[in-house]
Design a binder for these strands. Sequence first.
DNA 1: CTGGTCACCTGGAAGC
DNA 2: TGCTTCCAGGTGACCA
Length: 275
Amino acid sequence: MPELPEVEVTRMGLAPFVEGKVLRKAVIRVQRLRSPVGELAQKLDAKTVLQLSRRGKYLVWHFVDAQGVKGWLVTHLGMSGYWRVWQLPAPEPGVHEHVDFVFDDCLVRLTDVRRFGDMRWFDDDPFGQKPLADLGWEPFDANVTAEMFARAMRAKRRPVKEVLMAGDVVVGCGNIYSSESLFLAGIHPARTASRISEKRLSALFGAIQSVLSQAIDAGGSTLRDFHGVDGVDGYFALRTNVYGREGELCRKCGSPIKRIVQAGRSTFYCPKCQK
DNA sequence: CTGGTCACCTGGAAGC
DNA sequence: TGCTTCCAGGTGACCA
């Protein structure tokens, strides 16, 4: 389920439970997620979580050991991952509950049915390295303007939906929020990015910010559930305008919503509202 | 740079 | 009921 808003909500939910705390023990019950997990448990042992941050859809755990040596754990939720906080003692883990981080007063547990998630340890600052370094701008970076976004988009000769999904201009829009943002901006998902006016692309940037921040707020309202005692997970009941609504009527104009396939993924749009 | 395919993995829903 | 097929919110590798 995780696009940027879900990851951000996860970060906000976990942070108060882990920041400043000593990770007493990491228990890893899986050989690999997307990549091998290897020596991870030893790497994490007895280190303190300085900070939990987010870059795109990645969650970045900043650690420091007793000698003051820093380290970073970069994690990704893939398609089906989520973290949950448990009071101690936590229940026995289920089949797909692969990782436990045990702290003095709680345990955070990663569940990932499909195991497309990822966890990688970095001895050096990861932000200038492989997966993170290649990412596009953060959509809420105050230094990024709609004009910059529009100019970068106009350099792309691909369908605008695919450009958003690729995340090399701006991160955070996965399959749902790409469709939703384009609906809000009134742009047809198959339109070539370079052929959209600067003005409409600027509007798209605003639409992305609006869709993502609304989703974060919606998730924020479920935060209580997220770390509730009986731990209802952090999914959203999201009211989409187009995503998953093929054949249903557009909330704005009443036309039937269409579905097409782009880059192997379903795209939903209103043929009348989006040109 | 672009566009297409495949692969990673499990499970739920729909179709027959 | 049981089997098959399709589909799922992500990424990265490989190929033309």
